[in-house]
Design a protein around this nucleic acid. Structure first.
Length: 264
DNA sequence: ATGGTCGTGGTACGA
């Protein structure tokens, strides 16, 4: 079972890349972030033609997440609990049958939070992270393999960015952000990529501006967080960096993991 | 030269 997360930065602008990548990588379950379209605008037919089931949680112009899967989910839930009046489409959950049980795969697009002195944006990020931790704690009680996959907009550690000086005052790196991320680790979630390699640095995002990609000025903000029941089955991970060299790339690349689960 | 780019929707904003 191969799982993946990818902030695609506009699914309609990225359709050719998405199709090419699905054909090449052939993941079983994919969480997409920043589809930047309403549900009706998602290029559903093109993805279904590749044998994928498509579930979306869209929004006009911004945000939006989707779940693509070779197997049909038994259950899909949209929206992160606890956000009374939160209109932003940033979270969805799918439950999939596998041999011997289920896996629960959540696709999340965590708020950016910049600028940190804005009266709304950084508090929204931190409260969203609180809601995510509460959700995670609730789901952990099910004792299922649980994957929290997505664009966290969190640089977990100093070696996850090309220059700490450039990021230390940023909402992606400020101490409260990293503390909130560590709460997930302390609940028992494993950062799959970090757990399966000693290599550093590892990046998943390179800004379009300032020649960040050719200079390898990247950050690692897209994560696959695994509950104990999932990390027990972790085989390998990868950051599909070559996709950043394709024409009209997203500024993020796919992050994948292979887990030792078999289809029903 | 001290910025530099995208996508979306509509000529601003978020990242």
């Amino acid at each position: 079972m191969k799982i993946a997360t990818w902030n695609i930065n506009g699914v309609r602008a990225r359709l050719d890349n998405l199709v090419a990548w699905l054909k090449e990588s052939s993941p079983d379950i994919v969480g997409l972030q920043e589809i930047k379209t309403v549900d009706e605008g998602f290029p559903r037919a093109e993805i279904e033609a590749l044998g994928y089931h498509v579930e979306t949680h869209g929004q006009k112009g911004f945000n939006g997440v989707a779940l693509l899967s070779k197997i049909r989910p038994d259950e899909v839930n949209r929206g992160l609990p606890g956000g009374d009046g939160d209109e932003q489409s940033r979270f969805m959950e799918g439950v999939f049958s596998v041999k011997g049980g289920v896996i629960r795969f959540c696709c999340l697009y965590l708020p950016n939070g910049n600028p940190p002195d804005d009266p709304v944006k950084y508090p929204y990020k931190l409260s969203w992270m609180d809601r995510l931790a509460a959700f995670a704690e609730d789901r952990l009680a099910l004792e299922e393999p649980l994957i929290l996959a997505g664009d966290y907009n969190v640089i977990p550690e100093p070696h996850d960015c090309w220059d700490v000086k450039a990021w230390e005052k940023d909402a992606l790196y400020l101490p409260p952000t990293r503390q909130a991320f560590r709460r997930l680790e302390n609940l028992g979630f494993t950062d799959a990529v970090r757990a399966s390699t000693d290599a550093a640095p590892l990046y998943t995002f390179w800004d379009y501006q300032a020649g960040c990609w050719p200079k390898n000025n990247g950050i690692r903000i897209d994560h696959l967080m695994l509950s104990a029941e999932a990390s027990d089955r972790l085989v390998s991970t990868g950051i599909e960096k070559h996709v950043r060299n394709w024409e009209k790339p997203s500024d993020h690349v796919p992050v994948v993991a292979v887990l030792d689960f078999a289809a029903v």
